[in-house]
Structure formats: C-alpha cells, structure tokens
Simulated assay, not measured.
Amino acid sequence: MREQPLCVHCARSGRVQLATVVDHADGNAMNNERSNLQPLCASCHASKTAREDGGFGNPRR
C-alpha cells in the first residue's frame, strides 16, 4: 500500500479513496504473488468478498 495507497476499484470509477486492505485479486488467500495483491478500501473489499464468496467466513456458493 506504500507504493499504491489508493483503492484500485474506486479509482476505476473515478473516485479517490485511501486503501485500507490488501486484497487477493484472484480470491485465493494462498496466492501471495505480488501481482495478485491489490489495495482496496474497506467498502470495496467487503463488497468484493460478499460478491465472490457470500461474505466473510461463509462458504462459496
């Protein structure tokens, strides 16, 4: 986040928001390759998580 402090999802929508979470872009928490990590704000991270696996701690549907 030091290198890219803004939320990449917000930036795509023309918004400027500080990132607070480093997200695994492919959803695989075991894939810690630098290219798989992206900075997100808490809101975008929560939305992405809910969209991809039904929310924090819930099994994928």
Results as ranks from 00 to 15, higher is better:
Gly55Trp: 03
Asp26Trp: 09
Arg34Ile: 14
Gly54Asn: 15
Cys7Arg: 00
Met30Val: 08
Ala19Pro: 00
Ala19His: 00
Ala29Gln: 13
Met1Asn: 05
Arg12Phe: 04
Leu6Asn: 08
Thr49Val: 15
Ser13Val: 08
Asn28Asp: 15
Asp26Leu: 03
His45Cys: 09
Val8Ser: 09
Gly54Tyr: 02
Asn28His: 08
Ala46Met: 12
Arg61Asp: 13
Thr49Tyr: 00
Asp53Gln: 13
Ala11Ile: 10
Phe56Thr: 14
Ala25Glu: 07
Ala50Arg: 14
Pro59Lys: 09
Ser35Arg: 10
Gly14Ser: 07
Ala46Lys: 01
Arg12Ile: 03
Asp53Glu: 12
Leu18Lys: 10
Asn31Gln: 02
His45Trp: 12
Gly54Ser: 11
Asn58Ala: 09
Gln38Tyr: 01
Gly54His: 05
Ser35Tyr: 05
Ala50Gly: 04
Ala46Gln: 11
Leu40Met: 15
Asn32Thr: 08
Asp26Ala: 03
His24Tyr: 10
Asn31Pro: 00
Leu6Ala: 07
Cys10Val: 08
Gly14Tyr: 10
Ala29Asp: 07
Ser47Leu: 11
Ala11Thr: 14
Leu37His: 11
Ala19Ile: 02
Glu33His: 11
Phe56Tyr: 14
Gly14His: 10
Leu18Tyr: 13
Asp26Ile: 03
Asn58Trp: 05
Val21Lys: 01
Gln4Pro: 00
Ala42Arg: 14
Ala29Thr: 10
Asp26Gln: 09
Val8Ala: 12
Glu3Lys: 10
Ala42Gly: 11
Val21Tyr: 02
His45Phe: 13
His9Lys: 14
Arg15Asn: 13
Cys7Thr: 01
Leu18Trp: 13
Ala11Asn: 11
Leu6Ser: 03
Val8Phe: 03
Val22Ile: 15
Cys44Asn: 01
Thr20Phe: 01
Val16His: 11
Cys41Phe: 04
Ser13Arg: 15
Arg2Met: 09
Glu52Cys: 06
Cys44Glu: 01
Glu52Ala: 10
Asn28Ser: 06
Ala25His: 07
Phe56Ala: 12
Asp23Ser: 05
Cys44Gln: 01
Leu6Trp: 14
Ala25Ile: 10
Gln38Ile: 05
Leu37Thr: 04
Val22Arg: 04
Ser13Thr: 13
Thr20Arg: 00
His24Glu: 07
Pro39Met: 06
Glu33Thr: 05
Gly57Ser: 08
Ala50Pro: 01
Gly55Met: 08
